[in-house]
């Protein structure tokens, strides 16, 4: 029998798997560098928590409501910004994330900077496992469908995809909407697990943590997002058990990330593409880095 602490860790791994795999759809499969995933998480968290607290929504309904509100914002923000590419898109999504955080910081209904307390605890291990399975199933179906092939075509070469008749903006907005939906779902589970939410936990660092999960696990791989979420969630917690060395746990954690990226730049599970012998991550980062400086597209 697992003790509550380990159950809590498994639940957090599950929530982060939902966050990472939905971000993976945007980054790893469609090749769009979004670093504002925490915004969708916070929208989902606040929307679902507020309807639970004020309108007594049943748990499933409030989760769905949170996810749908996040989708709405995903589509709203996606439509104008997805015309941007690479690091320009990254900055735009980062800006969106900050706007959302500051709005929640200043609204009265969200409790402002004091945070929202008194959310009933409804997230259990079972609901998280079911949510993870649904997320992975749906994302897997999307990736193996016509939409998924269009998304991968956009990642491989947007111009070529467009010349083959793929409406790239349309598919990119769809992908953003789906990513936001599951991001919002993760946020709803998060809020009903901790029973307290405060805007500061959904800032830039939270988005970067999600990005780390995707990159560390392996871009464009379903298992990669799961492994990345597990590693990033569990390592800092497991390092609490180092006894006298626990003082250095954040240093060790950072060192592990640096070493992993040095040894496995393609991520733990990431495969090298047979055609050009580079991984999806390396290819995308080369391209994103090249864009800002006017370098050649990889």
């Amino acid at each position: 029998m697992l003790s509550p602490y380990y159950i809590q860790l498994v639940i957090l791994v599950g929530i982060n798997t939902i966050m990472a795999s939905s971000l993976n759809l945007i980054i790893g499969y469609t090749g769009q560098l979004s670093i504002g995933h925490a915004a969708f998480m916070s929208i989902g968290a606040y929307a679902s928590a507020l309807v639970t607290v004020h309108f007594n929504f049943p748990f499933i309904a409030s989760l769905l409501f949170g996810a749908l509100v996040a989708t709405l914002f995903g589509l709203l923000i996606g439509a104008p910004t997805l015309k941007l590419k690479g690091d320009y898109l990254a900055i735009a999504t980062l800006g969106f994330c900050e706007i959302v955080r500051i709005v929640f910081l200043n609204l009265d209904i969200t409790g402002g900077s004091v945070g929202l307390r008194g959310i009933p605890k409804k997230t259990t291990l079972l609901t998280v496992v079911v949510a993870v399975l649904i997320t992975i199933f749906v994302l897997n179906r999307i990736i193996n469908s016509r939409i998924g092939r269009a998304l991968i075509a956009i990642r491989e070469d947007e111009t070529a995809a467009e010349s083959m008749g793929i409406n790239t903006t349309y598919y990119k907005v769809i992908c953003f909407g789906v990513g936001a939906f599951f991001g919002g779902l993760g946020g709803g589970l998060f809020a009903h697990f901790f029973r307290f939410i405060q805007p500061n936990s959904f800032g830039f660092m939270c988005s970067i943590e999600h990005l780390c999960m995707v990159v560390l696990g392996g871009m464009g791989s379903m298992w990669g997002a799961f492994i990345g979420a597990t590693a990033i969630t569990a390592i800092p917690e497991l390092l609490r058990f180092l006894g006298d060395f626990a003082d250095y746990r954040m240093v060790i954690y950072g060192a592990i990330l640096v070493i992993m990226m040095r040894v496995r730049p393609q991520g733990i599970i990431g495969q090298r593409l047979s055609a050009d012998q580079v991984s999806i991550g390396e290819k995308l980062f080369n391209r994103w880095a090249g864009m800002g400086t006017g370098g050649k597209r990889g």
Partner: peptide, 21 residues
């Protein structure tokens, strides 16, 4: 003693670990 890094969600982990482990 357990560290939170100033993040409340990590504080929840720290509370659980102290109580449980």
């Amino acid at each position: 003693s357990e560290d939170t890094g100033g993040d409340w969600s990590k504080a929840a982990n720290a509370f659980s670990k102290l109580i449980d482990v």
